[in-house]
């Protein structure tokens, strides 16, 4: 149709030869159907095969393609060139994570946090297979459903200044995931998980900036999960005063 092009600045970092990241500009043909991820794939296939980035599903399900697009954490496969054209676009690896290489970040801390909150159903009593499934009504499911939509993309950690200031903070997605299990009627692990919530690094590391919920591509509301947990934790504190362990 047209032969227009678009410029993309990419923050690059090649650990085997660079001491610090630097910006490299790529000019590619513009196509209004093209996602940021497809633009990167075009660059890798046609322009510069050394560029590294993560992706898998191309449909906002796997959570691998998070990156900073003009300073905002987004999924590369869910952002489109047309929303930036004709301006230059700046791509950087997700903020608040160490850079592994180019747009690839080290997510170990994030994964550890997710694992730390016991992200599995802890039933009141184990049932054998023959005893059948744990029954749940749609209303009971509604209580936790939105918190179960997380795809572990890490955008909310890149949006969180408290995590940036102190990585000890358990952080938005992990606390939302914690809410997902504590709010599940089949789960009886709330008391165990509350110990994590009650800590300084738990919900009390949060100052309610609220950007996490804004950037989440799946409509999860980590800020609400944390805020509700602050109320819970305050109640728990009061009870703890009268009933010391």
């Amino acid at each position: 149709m047209t032969n227009s092009t678009i410029d993309i600045d990419i923050l690059r970092y090649r650990p085997e030869q660079d001491n610090a990241p630097f910006v490299q500009t790529y000019r590619i043909p513009y196509d209004e159907e093209m996602s940021m991820l497809e633009a990167l794939q075009y660059i890798k296939d046609e322009v510069d095969g050394t560029l590294s980035f993560r992706w898998s599903c191309r449909m906002a399900i796997c959570g691998s393609c998070g990156m900073m697009i003009d300073g905002v954490p987004k999924l590369g496969c869910k952002a489109f060139l047309r929303d930036y054209y004709p301006n230059k676009i700046k791509l950087e690896p997700l903020a608040n994570f160490p850079i592994e290489r180019d747009l690839v970040v080290v997510m170990d801390d994030f994964i550890t946090k997710l694992e730390s909150i016991k992200p599995y159903i802890i039933p009141a009593e184990e049932k054998s297979l023959e005893q059948g499934e744990y029954i749940q009504t749609p209303e009971q499911m509604a209580k936790y459903k939105q918190f179960s939509m997380c795809i572990n993309c890490g955008l909310c950690y890149a949006a969180c200044p408290q995590y940036a200031l102190n990585t000890e903070f358990t952080g938005p997605a992990a606390l939302a995931l914690l809410a997902r299990y504590n709010r599940d009627s089949r789960d009886a692990g709330s008391a165990e998980r509350m110990a994590i919530v009650n800590a300084e690094e738990g919900v009390w590391g949060c100052t309610f900036v609220g950007y996490c919920s804004k950037v989440c591509p799946k409509g999860v509301d980590p800020a609400a999960a944390i805020q509700l947990f602050k109320v819970e934790s305050a109640k728990d504190y009061l009870i703890g005063m009268f009933k010391p362990e």
Binding site: Y13, P15, E16, P21, P98, I99, E100, V106, P161, A164
Partner: peptide
């Protein structure tokens, strides 16, 4: 290993 994660300053 050639790994050398780069930590950006806030």
């Amino acid at each position: 290993s050639k790994r050398k994660p780069y930590q950006r300053e806030l």
